[in-house]
Design a protein around this nucleic acid. Sequence first.
RNA 1: GGGAGGUUAGCUCAGAGGAAGAGCACUUGCCUUACAAGCAAGGGGUCACAGGUUCAAGUCCUGUACCUCCCACCA
Length: 863
Amino acid sequence: MKKELKTSFEAGSFENFLYKFWLDERYFTPEINSKKKSFSIVIPPPNVTGKLHMGHALVNTLQDIIIRYKRMKGFNVLWLPGTDHAGIATQMVVERELKKEGKTKYDLGRENFLKIMGDWKEKYKDNIKNQLQMLGCSCDWTRERFTLDEGLSYAVRYAFVKLYKENLIYQDFYIVNWCPRCRTALSDLEVVHKEVKGKLYHILYPFKEREGGLVVATTRPETMLGDSAVAVNPKDERYKNFIGEKVILPLLKKEIPIIADENVDLEFGTGALKVTPAHDPVDFIIGKKHNLPYYLIFDEKGVINKEGGPYEGFDRFEGRRKVLEDLKKEGLLIKIEDHLHKVGHCQRCETMIEPYFSKQWFLKMEDMAKEAIKVVKSGEIKLIPSFWEKTYLEWLENIHDWCISRQLWWGHRIPAFYCTCGNIIVEMEDPKICPKCGSENLKQDEDVLDTWFSSALWPFSTMGWPEETEDLKVFFPTSLLITGFDILFFWVARMVMMSLKFTGKVPFYEVYLNGLVRDAEGEKMSKTRGNVIEPEEVCKLYGPDAVRFTLSALTSYGRDIPLSHERMEGYRNFMNKLWNASRFVLSNIEEPLPLQVDKEIPHQYILSKLQKTIKNVEDGFSLYRFDILTNEIYHFVWNEFCDWYIEISKYYLKKEKTESVKSILFFILKNILKLLHPIIPFITEEIWQKMEISKSITIEDYPEFDENLLNEGAEKVFEKFKVLISKIRAYRKSLNLGKNVRLNLFIKGERVEELKNLIEFMENVEVEVTEKEKIIEGIKDKYEDWEWLLKVQKDFLSENFLNTIKKEIEKLLCEKERIEKRLKDENFIKKAKNEVISIQKERLKEVEEKIAFFNENLKVYGE
RNA sequence: GGGAGGUUAGCUCAGAGGAAGAGCACUUGCCUUACAAGCAAGGGGUCACAGGUUCAAGUCCUGUACCUCCCACCA
């Protein structure tokens, strides 16, 4: 053909150019008035914090594979991209940067800090876009969104106001998870529990009116400064008599009551629990029930405040040391035990969480959760793999109200305005005056919303909700969500709830939850381990196609993905293989050719195999088995097309009439490229354009299974041919007979005549198709009904070769015995399916014949 | 304390009732005019363990051990 491919495949030389070409042609932007069926995915918006990691590469590759597949399948496809402002995560990164300059956000003030955040965002948003484009992601960039955009912010406000007016959003004093470093409240999900080797301190609280006292056990002695009672279980015989009496709280010397509460575990510690309602979740509940006072002893940084009396100004950990020291002095520290327990840590900065009593905004979850349960139970939303459904349902069934306020600056500011008269105004517009008292002295709530609040609206807010937009009509609900299982609760479940609440529809019909990318040994990638693989780096090394192919090939159901350079190298080699196969085909073809079907076996075989591949790939797609569909094509391309058909085509290309073989080569290549395009878009487009069939493969039809091209018969005969060829090669090798030595082959079997010339061409043998048995010196062997004899002179036979045959006989004898035993078993004959029995009988025959052949071989060549 | 997933070749993983599979690694030959990032031929497995169901069990059931991960207010 006119355009030639370079002699070796070089990734990196054409990708950027092709991506620009796709953008210029607007292939990724769907038509809004299309008659085609819609297929839509919204991207899990990456955080604007920084670089994409391998997990992003995976989730976006998988999405792109599906998106490109559906596009080729004739759907009107939308893949909507965007980024997330990622409240705490992003703010933390910027704060860290500031710290390098010795500054804090408080030095800058809210306004200046947000300006810096804005600049930061601009920089990284493009970064992320560029990296997604580097991977070939076919997102519709004309629809790119960011969670803090005007439109999305409007949606957030709309949702907040509506929920507030329905009394689903409320403000309350509650014990929340507090990060003293981030100085904000966190939701339960943002707390990671880690096992910590701690101590259990036994402290004596003396009775007020008796000798002795109660010994309480605690892991956090410093919180005793905020104690307002000691609780015992009402059933506890040890303490029954003391209930209602008082003890003296050590150090602060306050009188606190002894109360009875069922929440106290008799078995744990001493069975007596110090109650600190402001700093422990259980104590909080107990405190509420018994109307105990709340002593908040820490400030927002975790430093002891004036409630702590002499301990004021100590950080919580210093405070602990000091308290213990003083208790020891007073002889009240009875015992210290080692104690293994789980302690909450901030998901983002790993600081130890402080349960903290404070006023926060909450979203009532129970009713919304019920709806979200229904749609999964009914199957309207399908989770893949399905075992996630149980996890999802259990979480929703035990849901707690969601703390949605964060004491941060980077995010959607809570649209609640406080008037000096005590009125709270929550409306779509910022109020100028208080509707109640007319005051102009209004102050907006300082807090922002949890990042996941805006994420929860993402599938529809990105399409213009609450306006009734065309996009919503055409593309919502979305078809599929692909995301990591780690955000099943954070994001997936909340989207379902919010979507049902606000649109009355599910946000998506299917959710594919991918595994985690790990290193070759299955270890989590981490900087400290030094095993991090960066998408950018490997795209440069192996090309984005090879990276995508690797990720896809390794993605089976729910499993983690063990990524390694070796794997990527292997699949990079596949790219090279494909490249060179294409080079071979194109170098033999002058112009695009329509398929001319040839009836000869090899052509029938490859066309038939292609159809099977198409079918299997289709099945792989319908099951979201990326590994299956990827390996299916890999195998077809390498082990069928390259290893056999291309080699065979060299024979046909030497003959006179070559049109049909050329057309078949062209046809197969064309289909291979189409099959592969969703996985490896760049290289397939590059080759496609050289084939001069059409402008772009991106919008070509995906191959459809064509029953007319199936030919089981040809496949079977070809299989025998393959075995024969392999055997001849094996004989040559073990006999040390080079390919330059022409051998004589006597053979009989079904349709072998048709392949005679091809066998001669491939293996340098003289083939005689014969029905008669010829007793001559030679190696006899068979496969199914093909029986053959390769004439080899006695001198060539080595001890080694004869031993191989002997071993082979031994193996066959074992098998023979096994089958015979089975066939003699009355129960087997009675109960097994006829089909199974006949297979066994056939196999026995085959084995027996082979044994006979090998014995003859031994006899002929025997000593 | 609940729950989920896993244990198959040296490594990483497919296979889910009827002769143990792939990629990489390994051995041995080959620069055979698409490709040495390649070609060809090989070696390699009590399918974690113990019971059970079945004519037949990596495959189904029960239990055990070990690994991974979620969830939970154990001071």
